[in-house]
């Protein structure tokens, strides 16, 4: 990966701290988060036509991350996220949603790593890419787990919005266009409850 052209960012979440971030990104970025003991990080990150490298180091015991990442791509895009469970009782839940708008490539590389020394970890990932047209999307979910006691779930879906869902919406009087808007919005908002996220996102969606 060509790291030179990207902005680098290091963020440390100190002991016992809880942080929630809402990020809107229009330029390529590498972010490394380091979590200390008993800390918690919640991130809602929205990317637009960019490439991102994210690394999350769960370095302290009982540290926990919840990462919601949404990407809209009108060009080739790539997203890599690495979650390192470097301590006992660490927990990660990551939700990666991509909307591949045109006929480009969108690649997700999702890695969760639990080495032998880390006990009682929870490592979950949910990955989805929706192709609005005939984009070429891939998801590589990777769980590198050296531990028996890990709780781990992962799912990956690449495809279109399901016709039956659209039928259900339309059967309640919602037009196809509004139906798509509703589905795109809820897919990309990725469970954020923040009004500002929604407003910013709606601006971008209206350009699709």
């Amino acid at each position: 990966m060509n790291k030179i052209e990207r902005k680098e960012k290091f963020i440390t979440i100190s002991k016992n701290q809880e942080i929630e971030l809402h990020l809107f990104d229009k330029e390529n970025k590498n972010i490394i988060y380091s979590l200390e003991k008993n800390s918690k990080l919640i991130v809602y990150q929205y990317g637009f036509d960019i490439n991102n490298n994210i690394e999350i180091q769960l370095n302290g015991e009982n540290s926990e991350v919840e990462y919601h990442y949404s990407l809209i791509g009108h060009q080739n895009t790539q997203y890599n996220i690495l979650v390192l469970h470097n301590a006992n009782n660490t927990k990660s839940n990551i939700y990666n949603h991509g909307l591949n708008v045109l006929n480009n490539k969108m690649d997700f590389n999702i890695v969760g790593k639990v080495p032998k020394k880390s006990k009682n970890c929870i490592c979950n990932q949910e990955n989805q890419i929706i192709n609005l047209k005939n984009g070429n999307s891939t998801i590589l979910p990777n769980l590198l787990i050296d531990q028996y006691e890990v709780v781990s779930n992962h799912s990956a879906y690449i495809g279109k919005f399901k016709d039956d869902i659209l039928f259900y919406l339309m059967s309640r009087g919602i037009s196809k266009k509004r139906g798509y808007e509703l589905l795109i919005k809820s897919f990309l908002i990725n469970n954020s409850n923040k009004q500002e996220d929604l407003i910013n996102l709606e601006k971008e969606i209206s350009k699709i």
Partner: peptide
């Protein structure tokens, strides 16, 4: 007529197995 146009006529189908719509409240 399209599905939504039929609904706009006032037709409603309560489905045998209603569809799950993830993400939409």
């Amino acid at each position: 007529l399209e599905v939504d146009e039929r609904a706009k006529c006032g037709i409603f189908l309560a489905m045998q197995d209603p569809t799950v719509i993830n993400g939409v409240t």
